[in-house]
Simulated scan of single mutants.
Amino acid sequence: MAKNSVVTARRVHRVRRALKAAANGRLRLSVHRSGLHIYAQVIDDTKGVTVCSASSLEKDLRGTLKTGANVEAAKTIGKVLAERAVAKGVKQVVFDRGGYLYHGRVKALADAAREGGLEF
């Protein structure tokens, strides 16, 4: 494994360990970003089930987004995910940034999810 991969893996595990300790049974909002797209899902770790998800790859969102790799796309995904989660009865989650810095697209997605009705 390259040094960067080891450092990233350690950061991911550190964030996830702290998150599970503070979760108190709440669902987890997990974020993944790539160079071209952004993905988010609400996960129930006790059952091992994804409750709802949203990504910039979805057919109905692709037409409205210029690209999936910018802050505007992250805001849209955050709002869509929050709407879907609230429709499923989920209000409180813990935010799993997945080792990414809380900055840029990750922060934009989190802020939009809060505006959409999720609490974390």
Rank of each mutant, 00 (worst) to 15 (best):
G104V: 02
R105K: 10
L27P: 06
T67K: 15
S34G: 09
I43Y: 12
V7R: 10
E58R: 06
G99D: 04
A9F: 01
R16H: 04
V90C: 06
G89M: 03
D44F: 03
G99R: 05
T46L: 08
K79M: 15
R26T: 08
S53M: 04
L81R: 10
L29I: 02
S56P: 08
A110D: 02
R62P: 09
V15E: 13
L61K: 11
G63P: 05
L27M: 12
L57C: 13
H32G: 12
V49P: 08
A40W: 00
R17K: 14
V7C: 03
T76P: 09
Y102N: 05
V51E: 03
D96S: 00
Y100Q: 09
V93E: 04
D111S: 15
S55I: 00
R11G: 07
S55Y: 04
G68S: 09
V51D: 04
S55D: 06
K91R: 14
E83K: 02
V15L: 11
C52Q: 05
T46G: 11
R28E: 10
A110M: 00
A9S: 09
R105V: 04
K20S: 11
K66T: 13
V93D: 02
G35A: 15
H37W: 10
H13R: 12
G35I: 15
E72W: 11
L81A: 09
T46I: 06
K75V: 10
V15C: 10
V51Y: 00
